[in-house]
Design a protein around this nucleic acid. Structure first.
Lengths: 102, 102
DNA sequence: CAGTATCCGTATCGATACTG
DNA sequence: CAGTATCGATACGGATACTG
């Protein structure tokens, strides 16, 4: 935690977390274990379906979430992959910092 | 680190780290203790002075770095504030994740 | 419910040239 | 050295309406 330790390449995480909405979205995944499209629309104020869809697609393409479709129920869920779950420490740190300097 | 712990608001950190280049820039601050403009230009491939200047201004406005000018030397340095140093855990986690999933 | 299609404004960023 | 000025491309995201 000292400021002098080496910090190296940070790009992969930046590519994901730099997108607008994505950190907010991910915090729901961390809490909920599985999430539905309309659920996010209700919980995340201001996001529109076009953007939400784009974020979900990007996260899926990166292997951070996976889509679980149950066709007979005409609904689907998204849930974190292992790779996605390992973003949790970053999110937690971002939360801590944000609360401290709100 | 369990996926079920509560993650709350993450916006303040997102506002900073969501800007293109900023995480890359910050990693130099974490290592170097004090940094000069031209130093960053040399080290960060592809950034142009306009953008670098904008990032530095934003970081200064947020109280994450401070500018130390030595007029008689016609050069200045930037260094992390306490608030800025406390971004280190986030950057470190981002590095770990990025390396693991490069 | 879970998206897609379309359209469009703007914010962001790059390139380049120039300055105190 | 440490920036600013200008200009222009485009990527990004918002609003809205529509669909399997």
């Amino acid at each position: 935690m000292t400021a002098t330790e080496t910090i190296g390449c940070v790009k992969a995480a930046t590519k994901i977390l730099g997108d607008k909405w994505t950190p907010q979205l991910l915090r729901f995944f961390v809490n909920e274990e599985s999430v539905r499209f309309c659920q996010i629309q209700d919980l995340v104020e201001g996001i529109n379906p076009r953007t939400l869809s784009a974020r979900l697609d990007a996260l899926e393409a990166e292997g951070i979430i996976e889509k679980v479709t149950a066709p007979e129920k005409s609904r689907c869920e998204y849930r974190l992959t292992k790779k996605g779950k390992e973003l949790t420490p970053i999110l937690r740190d971002m939360q801590n910092w944000s609360e401290q300097y709100a």
